[in-house]
Design a protein around this nucleic acid. Structure first.
Lengths: 308, 308
DNA sequence: GATGCTTACGATACCCGTAAAGATA
DNA sequence: TATCTTTACGGGTATCGTAAGCATC
């Protein structure tokens, strides 16, 4: 048994049992991959993979159990390397943060700026993706820290803790009818309603992103079925189309900047949609460079711009 | 990094940083050991061992942390082998039980007999040692199951659960004065006292064995300092000297067999000494063959002979 | 002087990649 | 036929053990 064999086992699972792909990912030859698997199976005296003729289709029962252990071992092997870097190059190295557009664009900048000041020699990698992709990157060891709002909370193998809580807000073109409506309501001591919002065509996030689920839930519970004319990955795109007059937008409230978004106005609706909790996630059992812990420490409340 | 290097790191710690010894233990050459350590240190870019000139004296801080991870990895590598055996040879293999004389001689026989019936192809290895040695064997992976009474409960890295609870008993030569004394006490509804026992020279276990600590504690709390004229590792030895009239014995009550020990009588003293809890221990994180789990299951209360 | 670690060097075994053959869709 | 896996084989590399050199006690 050697590490190359273990890497091959892990990569075979990840690559859906296509050994050619495994060879490419690990920068080695197909034949070597094949032989390594055979050698390991011979050494252990058990079949690890289900085969139909020469094709691999999946794992056997012992194979699945072995894969779990292999994952742990390779994680530990990574931990050894991280440990060594920790001591040999105190404040140097790489930190990969996987996050969504919203966080990267509107929440993380001040934190990243502070971090760079403290660790000028650390190379920061900011990866953008969906919450699912972020979880995958963490589990595969491709990212050190993940930050996302949905789903990330209950992924097996991840350790998460709260980062910050925020609300959605409605954005409208300056002078929009809804804006006047809100002004009137305020005078009589009332607030904006979901029904009033649902009367207009909406532009908001793709499902799975930035609290889209909580928006849908709020409307559904109110018995409303608003027309969502456009969905996008990020608030910048949404704002562009709101400016064009295609509809009113629902975005994370911190995505609105009064100084820059001169053609838009923000309407508070923290009473309409439930608060969203953005979480920080790391892979369970993975050793973190000390500056990674420091990055997480920087994500304390006082460094997060108030958005409501 | 390869497994041989990891094995060498682990063995170096275990062998007190004597590389010659490491080489012998791992059946390889000194020079190879030396080179492997150097290679690993070079690869990681850190010193793992404290050196004085050419001698290794101990570990550096990163070395100590690395050793922990290495232990985990090698444990997992063992787990992979166990897993493979599990599937390739269902009911074959080896089971090493480390225990003390008392358990091996008076408690385990019926359990071992049942086990052999169920798994005739499993080779059982019964290792005897002190509780400390038992813990060491478990932690080093040399034994699968440990059974002992003292200290084993709070050893880091071991998982323990209760096996059975038992009391000490006093044994005396047939017709001994203490025996008559007890008979009298019984008639007036009274019981044997510690003071009555302490009046005679005592023969019991070595300290660290079979509840010796709880015996001492009981006397001490009663303000008594009995004379222990002989201490031994096991009840058989103790009984021999009690028969010779050297003193009265205090042994685990299950060590007395009325049918065999015709020259001795047992006096109940479950009210004088606290109960002793014998525990079963396994190494934390170590995969167990399924017949090992079965062995533990056999240690259920109904299979343990009542001793009080 | 005895023990213990390191370095040098030659033999061996292992790992890798190319190429050809066989199997599957 | 195109894709994929296995087997065979030659070249290269890494590992191992012997032996010599050199510290430490």
């Amino acid at each position: 048994m050697n590490f190359q064999q273990l890497r091959i086992i892990r990569e075979t699972v990840r690559s859906n049992f296509n050994l050619t792909e495994v060879a490419n990912k690990l920068f080695t030859s197909q034949s070597g991959v094949s032989k390594h698997i055979k050698d390991l199976e011979d050494e252990l005296g058990i079949e690890l993979f289900e085969r139909k003729g020469k094709r691999l289709l999946g794992m056997t029962a012992p194979g699945r159990e072995l894969a779990k252990i292999v994952d742990r071992m390779l994680l530990d092997s990574q931990n050894i390397k991280k440990l060594a870097e920790q001591y040999s190059q105190q404040d140097q190295g790489n930190l990969t943060v996987a996050t969504t557009h919203t966080q990267a664009r509107y929440v993380l900048p001040p934190i990243v700026a502070k971090f760079r000041q403290q660790y000028p020699k650390v190379k920061l990698h900011l990866h953008q993706g969906s919450p699912q992709e972020i979880a995958q990157m963490l589990l595969a060891g491709e990212a050190d820290i993940g930050i996302a709002t949905e789903t990330i909370g209950n992924v097996e193998g991840l350790l998460t803790f709260p980062f910050h809580s925020w609300h959605h807000a409605v954005i409208v073109p300056a002078g929009h009818a809804l804006e006047k409506q809100v002004a009137k309501l305020h005078k009589s001591g009332k607030q904006l309603t979901l029904a009033a919002i649902a009367a207009y065509p909406l532009i908001t996030y793709h499902s799975g992103f930035t609290g889209r689920a909580s928006i849908e839930k709020a409307f559904q519970e109110a018995g409303l079925a608003p027309e969502i004319v456009l969905s996008a990955l990020d608030a910048d795109v949404i704002k562009s189309y709101v400016e064009l007059g295609m509809g009113i937008g629902i975005v994370a409230s911190m995505a609105f900047n009064a100084e820059r978004d001169l053609n838009l106005h923000r309407l508070d609706c923290s009473h309409l949609f439930p608060a969203n909790l953005t979480r920080i996630a790391v892979r369970e059992g993975q050793l973190q460079r000390h500056f990674a812990d420091h990055f997480i420490a920087l994500c304390a409340p006082q460094n997060v711009a108030k958005s409501d």
